[in-house]
Design a protein around this nucleic acid. Structure first.
Lengths: 196, 196
DNA sequence: TGCAGCATGTAAGCGGTTACATGATTAC
DNA sequence: GTAATCATGTAACCGCTTACATGCTGCA
């Protein structure tokens, strides 16, 4: 039950229409809670039905017509309640670790390439986060609200740092210390096609 | 599409029945890909229908009767294919980070307690992983297969290390440097009731 | 014989994903 | 006027979660 609260948070930061929310998810909240426009429209409908948000007064809200929402007091209260409520952390679920464990049984043939690709992706994400930090959070200048947002960004940075380190270690471990050359450490890897 | 491959891996490591698999998931594979017995039974049925596994010859496989499975060559081939296939990493999805971002808007009241609880949980998980490492992976003695398993365990250890550090930082940041005392650094926190 | 525990399953519901449909606005 | 784009939706599917149902086995 997190998507509705993600939307409430976004709408409190700034009243928006469905598509505007989708775009803001893509570039900010989506870094730790992604959502498609279909999810968002469905959830906006539910939140409105429950009286937590309402459409901003506008000409005629019809299909194809822009429709903006704002949070009602009940919505803010629900968000505050949810934020303070105890929730257990969800257990880790990572298919790459699973593939590695499978590789211990069926062999690592072909896996190294994808590890290298992941390393590249994580390096790029890390660079993106660092750029955001440089731009939005100049040293020792965080306002109280910004302190919290900076903290969240730090989590992203540290997680990507972990992955890049761990993947680099894994590659030297799998290909052996005398294996094929690795990528130099601070250069983002070139793009390679995903697949799946 | 990871659960079937998790099951194939587990069955290759050792042929098992549904309930045995469930237990092994709880204590080993489940650390990075959890599954309930209902999921496992359903998936075993599918895998058998697809000809990737088969039931071990046994008296009479009836309801309430134990039924063990083993992997067929086609199953091993499918697992090898999947292991080597390129897959994109799934974007991060963490509700705690979401709650923190919400707290930047509606206030942090009540959130600190749950952060402390999470810190305790992650410390305990970290201790558990370290104990496994101490028991199963004595220094500089890993066989080739064990090297990979050790690598996976290392990921778990490093991830929990990240969370404990980040949560500790977050708490001192939120409660202020002069806030209420934090837990000492290497003592597992006492249990507190979950809720959700 | 009756009960606790083992073992296998069924059913309903929910959130997320993918593919597709439709109306309005803008640019050429 | 028509094509591209903006904007809002619908529908089908799939994996995971939760609750419940059913049959066997060992033991007091």
């Amino acid at each position: 039950m997190s998507l509705p609260h993600a939307i409430l948070t976004a709408l409190l930061e700034k009243p928006s229409s469905g598509l505007e929310l989708t775009r803001r998810f893509d570039k900010s909240i989506g870094y730790f809670w992604s959502a498609t426009h279909q999810q968002i429209y469905r959830e906006l409908g539910r939140l409105e039905a429950e009286g937590l948000i309402r459409t901003l007064p506008s000409p005629q809200p019809a299909r194809g017509q822009k429709k903006s929402y704002e949070v009602l007091p009940a919505g803010r209260a629900e968000l505050a309640r949810w934020t303070a409520a105890a929730q257990d952390p969800k257990p880790l679920r990572d298919s790459l670790l699973l593939r590695l464990r499978a590789a211990a049984v069926v062999g690592t043939a072909g896996l190294e390439d994808d590890l290298r690709r992941h390393l590249g992706l994580h390096r790029r994400q890390l660079a993106e986060y660092r750029e955001i930090e440089r731009r939005d959070f100049p040293p020792d200048r965080d306002a109280p609200q910004d302190r919290i947002r900076h903290l969240v960004l730090r989590a992203g940075i540290d997680l990507e740092t972990f992955w890049t380190r761990w993947l680099a270690d894994a590659l030297t471990d799998l290909t052996g210390p005398d294996g094929p050359g690795e990528l130099p450490d601070d250069v983002p890897a070139p793009a390679e096609p995903p697949e799946n």
